[in-house]
């Protein structure tokens, strides 16, 4: 049920300097350390740091594919045009106690509201996309803003990074220095020889060098497109700030270093498996799980997505299985 259609609803600053926001029957407020979320049947508290990191991904990804759990209680479900905001919907205890709550909003409205929260609650010096070691803290009374960080544009190549007219390569000059944990990654570009008349039609680039210059963590960005098949590589360090619930099969290819995944049942949160991925490993995440990654050292991960708009319904209706292949 859509409860609100236009506008951001908020109060003036509280004693800590932060505005309070209302979205349908949900309210969001923060103090120096914590974010408080309330709904008609309950309330919840999260670290401001963890909340802003999760909120940043949800906003930047346009609510991504499927479910973005901020933690075990709060999150969103993307219906690609509208978005559910939920509390306890994918938590077995809340469901059994009938304390869960879900409201549906047009995507532009919830996006506008989330952007307003992110803008107001992110202080100068805190970058929600950065690894904890590379940014200042999220805590304390309101102190400025960091719009340069919170409004970064997500890379979405139309064909391939580096193709003329498409997403550009990264360099020191364009503001993308090599990350401190990737200084040993070779920066050589492929040698391209184009015959006369075919200049600009022979394209290649160093993906690993490109990733070594990423200034964000846990932010899949599109670098190549084969119809609905999208390569969305990303660099990972520390903990994925959301627990991603799949509405389609998603694949991971470990390009460098190591990531550990905690895999749970998508709807209840019951533990199903642990996955350890090392360079060259390829692994599917079934369409009925949720997962959270842990990267001890900055790692390159290729997230492979099928962006077909038909998939969520096909899987939800049982016409397509939740696991990728039968063997």
């Amino acid at each position: 049920m859509a409860t609100q259609t236009t506008g951001v609803r908020s109060t003036g600053p509280n004693e800590h300097g932060y505005r309070r926001f209302q979205l349908g029957e949900f309210t969001f407020s923060r103090d120096e350390y914590f974010v408080h979320v309330a709904w008609p049947t309950g309330s919840h508290i999260m670290s401001a740091d963890a909340f802003l990191r999760a909120l940043q991904r949800d906003v930047a990804w346009g609510f991504f594919y499927g479910i973005v759990n901020f933690d075990g209680v709060i999150g969103t479900v993307n219906h690609y045009g509208t978005v559910d905001l939920f509390a306890g919907r994918y938590n077995d205890a809340y469901r059994k106690a009938e304390l869960d709550h879900v409201e549906n909003f047009p995507s532009p409205l919830i996006l506008e509201s989330f952007q307003a929260i992110l803008d107001d609650w992110t202080n100068a010096g805190f970058d929600p996309f950065a690894s904890p070691h590379e940014t200042g803290g999220a805590f304390g009374p309101k102190a400025g803003e960091n719009r340069r960080a919170t409004t970064r544009r997500r890379v979405t190549a139309r064909r391939m990074v580096g193709v003329p007219g498409d997403e550009p390569l990264r360099s020191d000059e364009s503001g993308f220095p090599i990350n401190r944990q990737f200084v040993d990654v070779p920066q050589d570009e492929p040698e391209i020889v184009a015959e006369p008349g075919f200049e600009g039609q022979v394209s290649a680039f160093n993906l690993f060098a490109y990733l070594s210059r990423s200034d964000v963590t846990w932010n899949p960005s599109i670098v190549s497109v084969c119809q609905d098949s999208l390569y969305c590589p990303t660099t990972e360090e520390y903990i994925l700030p959301v627990i991603h619930g799949n509405d389609r099969v998603e694949w991971f290819v470990q390009l460098s270093d190591e990531i550990h995944w905690a895999v749970e049942d998508r709807d209840t949160g019951a533990v199903r498996a642990r996955v350890v991925m090392k360079p060259g490993d390829v692994c599917a995440m079934p369409a009925d799980i949720r997962h959270q990654g842990y990267a001890p050292k900055r790692a390159m991960l290729l997230v492979w997505e099928n962006a077909s708009p038909d998939l969520p319904q096909l899987i939800a209706s049982g016409k397509v299985p939740t696991n990728p292949v039968e063997f």
């Binding site: 498996a273 060259g280 079934p286």
Partner: peptide
């Protein structure tokens, strides 16, 4: 030189993850 990770099954079927290593 490659070292393979793996799936540690707790309540699932390892085949659901279609886990392999491209170098292998």
């Amino acid at each position: 030189r490659y070292e393979k990770g793996g799936v540690e099954v707790i309540n699932d079927d390892a085949k659901n993850y279609t886990f392999s290593n491209m170098f292998e």
